[in-house]
């Protein structure tokens, strides 16, 4: 092989290795696994019969790990709840599912962003440390009313 070629490929391959190691460390060490990973099923025809999604909204968590559990139902073409208030500084586990087609669940300009698919529950844990009104939008095409799907998260005052 050509000398420059060797240098170039060695450089490229080692950059690749370093990059993968960083990704790996941050995944294992900081517990970052991609949103919605894992398999938790639900019957899409009976979403509202399921205790968790009967009255979607914010509930205190039974576990020590999270302050709240937040349940959302995404359907054509709305999110339930339409608006939710979260005390600043809370650690919230979000659960979303759908009774019909595929939707998106994006809290705009945050890294809460995942797909919602019939038959499955998408989960992600987020810390709400910034006050403000956050817009939730559907970012996967679901039909004509796709852009009408919105909800609002109001992060307010906080306990302390």
């Amino acid at each position: 092989m050509h000398k420059y070629e060797k240098i170039w490929l060695t450089f490229g391959t080692s950059a690749l290795v370093i990059f993968l190691v960083i990704l790996g460390i941050s995944a294992v060490h900081q517990g970052h696994s991609p949103a919605a990973s894992g398999i938790e099923t639900i019957n899409p025809e009976h979403v509202r019969d399921d205790a968790r999604f009967k009255e979607p909204g914010l509930y205190e968590s039974d576990t020590d790990e999270y302050d709240y559990e937040l349940y959302f139902v995404a359907s054509a073409f709305q999110y339930e709840p339409r608006e939710v208030e979260i005390p600043k500084g809370s650690r919230v586990r979000i659960h979303v599912t759908t009774p019909d087609v595929i939707h998106g669940f994006e809290i705009a300009q945050t890294n809460v962003n995942m797909m919602v698919e019939p038959g499955l529950i998408s989960k992600y844990t987020a810390n709400f440390n910034k006050e403000g009104e956050f817009l939730i939008i559907c970012n996967e095409y679901c039909g004509v009313g796709h852009t009408d799907m919105t909800s609002l998260i109001k992060v307010t005052g906080g306990e302390e």
């Binding site: 490229g12 993968l20 990973s37 894992g38 797909m115 038959g119 529950i121």
Partner: peptide, 22 residues
């Protein structure tokens, strides 16, 4: 970022993806 796939398999395929850098 979708449900129904374990994090491990997502990670593995990300690693394989980066192989095309070579």
């Amino acid at each position: 970022v979708e449900p129904g796939i374990d994090a491990f398999w997502k990670g593995l395929q990300v690693i394989l993806t980066f192989m095309v850098i070579v």
